Amino acid sequence: KRLCLVCGDIASGYHYGVASCEACKAFFKRTIQGNIEYSCPATNECEITKRRRKSCQACRFMKCLKVGMLKEGVRLD
């Protein structure tokens, strides 16, 4: 089984260019469509796991980008 490159949960397929789970796919889409900017309360190096993926949105979004999710893949309509 493929794992989500962002949080390590089971991937539902390839989304925005990267093997990812439904939760991270939806999080990435919401962030881009809403043009949301997050800031990390710590040092921008929070560990993102299935259990902790909700704890820091800034680091989760940075990890989405780091593993290769493409903003261009999100439709803005």
Rank of each mutant, 00 (worst) to 15 (best):
R30W: 09
P41N: 14
A23N: 02
Q57K: 09
K29R: 13
K54A: 12
V67S: 10
C64K: 01
S39M: 15
F27V: 03
S12Q: 14
R53K: 12
R30S: 04
D9C: 01
A26R: 13
C46I: 00
A42M: 11
Y14M: 06
S12C: 14
L70P: 11
R51I: 06
I36D: 11
I36R: 07
L65S: 04
D77E: 10
M69F: 13
C46N: 02
E47N: 10
T31Y: 06
T31V: 07
G73M: 12
V67T: 07
K71Q: 08
R30F: 01
R30N: 05
F61I: 10
G17A: 10
Y38M: 03
C59A: 02
I32S: 08
N35R: 11
R75W: 10
A42S: 10
S12G: 11
E72R: 05
D77G: 08
Q57G: 14
D9L: 04
S55Y: 15
T31S: 08
L5P: 05
D77N: 08
G73N: 09
T43W: 11
C59Y: 02
V18R: 05
R75K: 13
A42R: 11
N44C: 04
T31C: 05
Y14V: 14
C24I: 02
E37H: 08
F61E: 00
A42C: 04
C59G: 00
C56D: 00
C56N: 01
S12K: 12
I48G: 08
L5I: 06
G8R: 07
A11D: 07
S12R: 11
K50L: 10
G8A: 10
A23Y: 03
C40H: 11
L76Q: 12
E22M: 05
K54C: 05
C59M: 03
I48N: 15
G73H: 09
N44G: 14
K25F: 15
I36C: 11
K1H: 03
C40E: 02
F28E: 02
C59L: 01
H15P: 06
Y14P: 06
E37P: 04
A23Q: 11
G73R: 11
R53Q: 14
Y14I: 13
V74Q: 12
Y16T: 05
A42K: 10
C64H: 00
C24W: 01
L65H: 01
R52K: 09
K25E: 15
E45W: 00
C21F: 00
K54H: 14
Q57E: 12
V6A: 04
V18G: 07
N35I: 03
C21G: 01
S55R: 15
V18D: 04
C46K: 03
K50E: 15
C7R: 03
F61P: 00
Q33D: 10
R75A: 13
G68L: 02
V18C: 08
N35E: 14
L65G: 03
L76W: 10
G68P: 00
E45M: 08
P41Y: 12
R75G: 13
E22K: 04
T43S: 07
S55F: 14
C7N: 03
C59F: 04
A58G: 08
V67I: 06
M62T: 14
G34M: 11
G34N: 11
L70D: 13
A26P: 03
C59N: 02
L3M: 10
T43G: 12
R2Q: 05
A42G: 11
K50W: 08
C7L: 00
R53E: 13
G13N: 05
R51W: 12
T49V: 09
E45T: 07
K1Q: 05
G17L: 03
K71M: 10
C56K: 01
E72G: 09
V6I: 14
L5Y: 08
G13A: 02
V67A: 09
A23L: 05
E37T: 01
V18P: 06
S12N: 11
I32M: 04
L65M: 08
A26W: 10
A19Y: 07
V74F: 08
E37L: 02
H15N: 09
S12V: 13
A11Y: 09
S39N: 15
K63H: 05
R75H: 08
A26D: 13
R52M: 10
G13L: 02
K1V: 06
H15A: 11
R52G: 13
C21V: 01
Q33L: 09
N35H: 13
K29H: 10
L65E: 09
I10E: 13
R2D: 14
C21R: 01
V6F: 02
K66A: 14
G34D: 14
I48R: 04
K1C: 04
C7S: 02
K25C: 15
T31R: 02
Q57L: 07
K71E: 10
V6D: 00
C4V: 00
K1N: 13
C4Q: 01
R53H: 13
G34R: 11
F28S: 01
D77Q: 15
E37W: 03
V6Q: 01
D9Q: 09
K66Y: 04
M69E: 03
C4E: 03
Y38R: 05
R53F: 13
K29E: 15
D77R: 09
K1G: 05
L70C: 10
I48M: 08
T31D: 02
C24T: 00
L5V: 05
E72L: 05
F27R: 02
Q57D: 11
R60E: 01
Q33A: 10
C56I: 02
K1W: 05
K71V: 11
E72Y: 04
Q57R: 08
E37S: 04
S12Y: 06
Y14E: 14
N44S: 09
Y16K: 06
C59I: 03
L3H: 14
F61Y: 07
K63F: 00
M62D: 11
D77T: 11
R53C: 10
K63I: 04
D9H: 05
G34Q: 15
V74T: 09
R52P: 06
C4Y: 04
V67D: 02
H15D: 07
R2A: 07
V67L: 07
E45P: 03
C64G: 03
T31Q: 04
K50I: 14
Y14W: 13
R51F: 08
C7P: 02
C40K: 01
P41H: 11
C40S: 03
R53Y: 09
P41C: 11
H15E: 11
K54V: 12
D9K: 07
K50G: 10
R60G: 04
C7W: 00
R53P: 10
K25R: 15
A26F: 04
R51N: 10
Q57I: 03
A26K: 07
R53N: 13
I32T: 07
H15W: 10
R30H: 05
L65K: 04
V18A: 07
E37F: 01
T43K: 15
D9W: 06
G73Q: 13
S12A: 13
Y16I: 05
I10V: 15
N44R: 12
C56Y: 00
I10T: 12
D9Y: 05
G68E: 02
C24S: 01
R30D: 07
L70M: 11
R51A: 12
A23K: 11
I48S: 09
M62L: 09
P41K: 11
K63D: 01
A42F: 07
R2E: 09
E37K: 03
G17W: 05
Y38A: 03
K1Y: 12
K50Y: 09
V18F: 04
P41I: 10
R51Y: 05
F61N: 03
R75C: 14
H15I: 09
K29A: 15
R60W: 15
C40R: 02
C56A: 01
K25H: 15
R30C: 03
T43E: 13
L70S: 13
R60N: 03
G8F: 06
R60P: 01
C46M: 03
M62Q: 13
K71L: 08
K54E: 14
D9N: 05
A19M: 09
L5F: 09
E37R: 05
C21A: 00
Y14L: 13
M69S: 01
Q57S: 09
G73K: 12
C21K: 02
C4N: 00
K25L: 15
I10G: 14
P41F: 07
G17I: 01
E37Q: 05
R75T: 13
K50V: 14
R52Q: 14
C64E: 03
A58K: 10
C40I: 04
M69D: 02
N35Y: 08
